[in-house]
Design a protein around this nucleic acid. Structure first.
Length: 423
RNA sequence: GGAGAGGUGGCUGAGCGGUUGAAAGCACUGGUCUUGAAAACCAGCGUGCCUUUACGGGCACCGAGGGUUCGAAUCCCUCCCUCUCCGCCA
C-alpha cells in the first residue's frame, strides 16, 4: 500500500511514477472520493464530539441529583444524524481502502521503462555457457532415462505439473537445500527459520498477494487457510503488527519451504518438465531493514543469491526488471537467470526485490527510530536463494555428459555422501 | 472433540455503566544530587486519524465484529485466540 499522505498531497507524482508500469491511476475519482471522505469525517467527528459533551453533562447532572429529562430530550435528535454519518463514513473509508490496496507500488527511479520481459535490462553476466561436443539433453530426458524423474506417475497421484523424484536425484534435490541454507546462515549472516505452510488472509494481504491475486493461490475453504505461494509470506509476516528494536536490525531470515501455485492463466506455458510446477521448493531470504539502507541491502541480497550460483559454477545473468514486468508490491527487482543448455536459454532462478515500505504499511511492521523516538515503517526485501527445483534442473542440464550421467558439483558432494556422479 | 478460565498500554496488572486513554509497578527519556556511576527524588512517556501557519483542539482504539444505552474497557450476541483438565492423535 502506498502512503495515503502521498496520495493526498502528491497524487500527480504518483500517477507519473505508475505510468512506468503501465498502470493508469484514476486520479479524478480518487480525489473526489477522498474529498467526500474528508467532509463526512469532519462532520461525523463534530457530531461525536457533541454527543460526548452532552453525555458527560448528563453524567454530572445525575451525580449531582439534578433532573436530567431536559438534557435527554436535547440529545435525542443527535442520534439518527450521527448514525447516518457514521455508516456513510464507514462505507466511504472501505471503498477508499479497497482502491488503495489495489494500487501497485511505485517503481524506483532506477527502474527502466518498458512493457514486457523483453524490455528488462541486463546488468551483468557471470560464467560461460558450457560448449558440449554432443547435443545436450534437457532435464526431462536425462531424468527419465536415469529413472529418477517421473512426471507420469505424479500425474496419476495428483495432476499435471507435479513430479516424483527418486534415488540420487531426490537426494541431490535435498543436498541443494542443505547447501543453500548452510551458505546463507554461515557465510551471509541469516537466521534460519521454519514457518507455517498454511497462512491466513491477513498474511497474504500483508505481502500483497491479496486481494488482487487470489486466483494464484491454493485455498483450503474449510479452515480458511491458503497454501503459501512462497516463504516470503509467512516469513515477512513474522514482523506483522510489531515494533522492532533498532539494535536488532537488520532482521535477516532464510527459510526453506515448499511453494504452491495454481498457475492459473499459464496453461500453455512451460508444460514440459519441472520448470513450472504446482509445488516446488525454494530457499528464501527475507530482510527487514532501516529505510535508509534498503537499496544497499538489495545489492547485497542479490549478491547472496548469486553466490549460490557461483559456488555451483552455473552461468547466469542479472537483469533489472522493467516497470511493466515488476511485481505488484515491488519497487525494484533483479532477476537472476541461469543458463539451461536443454533450452539454450537463460531462465529465471531467483528474484530479488525491495518493497520499500509497501508491504510494511500493509503489515504495520515498524521499528522505533532512535532519532525521532517514533515507530516508523521498516523496509522489506526478499530474494530466492534459490528456487530449488530450477536449480536442480540447472545442475542436471549443465553437468550432464555424453552418456547421460550427471556429475555432481564439488560443493554438493559432501551432502551426497561423497558421490561425484549420478548414473 | 468435551469441561472450565481468560484476552486491558513496551511488560506486569487494576478497573466491571458516567468527569477513565485508562490506577499502580517495571521499563524508557529528561532533570536534581554525585568527581563519575548507582540509589533517591522531580517531571515526562501509547497508536492512528481529522483540524490548525503555529500554539492548540477534536475523533477513534482496552482480542475482532455487531447490539443495548444519552453515555460501554465495563452489559448482551457472534467469531478468533491463549491457558488448564479430559479424550484422540503424529
Amino acid at each position: 500500500m502506498l502512503d495515503p499522505q502521498l496520495i493526498r498531497n502528491s497524487l500527480d507524482q504518483i500517477q507519473l511514477a505508475l505510468t512506468k508500469r503501465a498502470y493508469t491511476l484514476d486520479v479524478d475519482s480518487l480525489q473526489a472520493l477522498d474529498t467526500r471522505r474528508k467532509k463526512i469525517q469532519v462532520q461525523t467527528q463534530a457530531l461525536q464530539s457533541e454527543r460526548n459533551r452532552r453525555s458527560k453533562q448528563i453524567g454530572k447532572a445525575k451525580a449531582a441529583g439534578e433532573d436530567i429529562h431536559a438534557l435527554l430530550d436535547d440529545v435525542e435528535s443527535l442520534g439518527d444524524k450521527l448514525k447516518a454519518c457514521e455508516s456513510e463514513l464507514q462505507t466511504v473509508q472501505l471503498e477508499l481502502h479497497d482502491i488503495l490496496s489495489g494500487i501497485p507500488n511505485t517503481p524506483h527511479e532506477t527502474v527502466p521503462a518498458g512493457q514486457t520481459e523483453d524490455d528488462n535490462v541486463e546488468v551483468r553476466r557471470w560464467g560461460e555457457p558450457v560448449q558440449f561436443d554432443f547435443v545436450p539433453k534437457d532435464h526431462v530426458d536425462l531424468g527419465e532415462a536415469l529413472g529418477m524423474l517421473d512426471f507420469a506417475t505424479a500425474t496419476t497421484i495428483a495432476s499435471s505439473r507435479f513430479v516424483v523424484m527418486q534415488g540420487a536425484v531426490a537426494r541431490l534435490h535435498r543436498a541443494l537445500i542443505q547447501f543453500m541454507l548452510d551458505t546463507h546462515t554461515q557465510e551471509h549472516g541469516y537466521t534460519e527459520v521454519n514457518v507455517p505452510y498454511l497462512v491466513n488472509k491477513d498474511s497474504l494481504f500483508g505481502t500483497g498477494q491479496l486481494p488482487k491475486f487470489a486466483e494464484e493461490q491454493f485455498y483450503i475453504d474449510k479452515q480458511a487457510l491458503y497454501l503459501i505461494p512462497t516463504a516470503e509470506v509467512p516469513v515477512t509476516n513474522i514482523a506483522r503488527d510489531k515494533i522492532i528494536d533498532a539494535n536488532v536490525m537488520p532482521l535477516k531470515f532464510v527459510c526453506h519451504t515448499p511453494c504452491f501455485r495454481s498457475e492459473a492463466g499459464s496453461y500453455g506455458k512451460d508444460t514440459r518438465g519441472m520448470i513450472r510446477q504446482h509445488q516446488f521448493e525454494k530457499v528464501e531470504m527475507v530482510q527487514l531493514v532501516k529505510p535508509e539502507n534498503s537499496y544497499q541491502v538489495l545489492e547485497q541480497l542479490t549478491g547472496h543469491a548469486e553466490a549460490i550460483l557461483q559456488k555451483l559454477n552455473l552461468p547466469y545473468r542479472v537483469v533489472t526488471l522493467c516497470g511493466g514486468d515488476l511485481g505488484f508490491s515491488s519497487a525494484k527487482t533483479y532477476d537472476l537467470e541461469v543458463w539451461l543448455p536443454g533450452q539454450h536459454k537463460y531462465r529465471e532462478i531467483s528474484s530479488c526485490s525491495n518493497f520499500e515500505s509497501f508491504q510494511a504499511r500493509r503489515l504495520q511492521a515498524r521499528w522505533r527510530n532512535p532519532d525521532t523516538g517514533k515507530p516508523e515503517l521498516v523496509h522489506t526485501l526478499n530474494g530466492s536463494g534459490l528456487a530449488v527445483g530450477r536449480t536442480l534442473i540447472a545442475v542436471i542440464e549443465n553437468y550432464q555428459d555424453k552418456d547421460g550421467k550427471i556429475h555432481i558439483p564439488a560443493v554438493l558432494q559432501r551432502y551426497m555422501g561423497g558421490m561425484d556422479v549420478i548414473s
